[in-house]
Simulated scan of single mutants.
Amino acid sequence: MKKFLLTVSALVLSCACTLSAHAQDIKGDATAGAQKNALCIGCHGIQGYHIGFPEVHKVPKISGQGAGYIRAALHAYKAGERKHPSMRTLAASLSEQDIADLAAYYESSGSGINVPATAADGPAKAAELVAKGGCTSCHGANLSKPIDPSYPKIAGQHADYLYVALRSYKINDKPMIGRSHPVMAGIATQFSDKEMKVLADYVASLPGEIQTVQRSRVK
Rank of each mutant, 00 (worst) to 15 (best):
V8S: 10
S9K: 09
L11W: 04
C15I: 13
T18G: 13
S20N: 10
A21Y: 09
A23Q: 08
A23I: 02
I26W: 02
K27F: 04
K27S: 06
K27M: 01
G28K: 01
T31V: 12
G33T: 10
A34N: 11
N37Q: 08
N37R: 14
L39R: 14
I41G: 05
I41S: 08
H44P: 12
G45Q: 00
E55P: 01
E55I: 10
H57A: 14
K58A: 15
V59W: 02
K61E: 05
G64S: 01
G64K: 02
A67V: 04
I70Q: 08
A73L: 13
R82A: 15
K83E: 11
H84M: 06
H84I: 04
S86C: 00
S86M: 11
L90P: 00
A100V: 11
A103I: 00
Y105E: 00
I113N: 13
I113F: 14
A120C: 00
A126M: 09
A126T: 03
L129R: 13
L129Q: 06
L129V: 08
A131F: 01
A131S: 11
K132P: 01
K132F: 00
G133F: 06
S137Y: 07
A141W: 00
L143G: 05
L143Q: 05
I147L: 14
P149R: 01
P152F: 10
I154M: 04
I154V: 14
I154R: 07
G156L: 05
H158K: 06
Y169S: 03
Y169C: 11
I171L: 14
M176K: 10
M176N: 12
M176W: 08
M176T: 15
G178T: 01
S180E: 14
P182M: 12
G186W: 00
A188L: 09
Q190D: 06
F191S: 11
S192F: 07
K197D: 05
L199P: 06
L199R: 05
L199H: 05
Y202W: 15
G208W: 00
E209Q: 06
Q211F: 06
T212M: 03
T212Y: 04
V213D: 09
S216M: 10
R217E: 08
V218W: 00
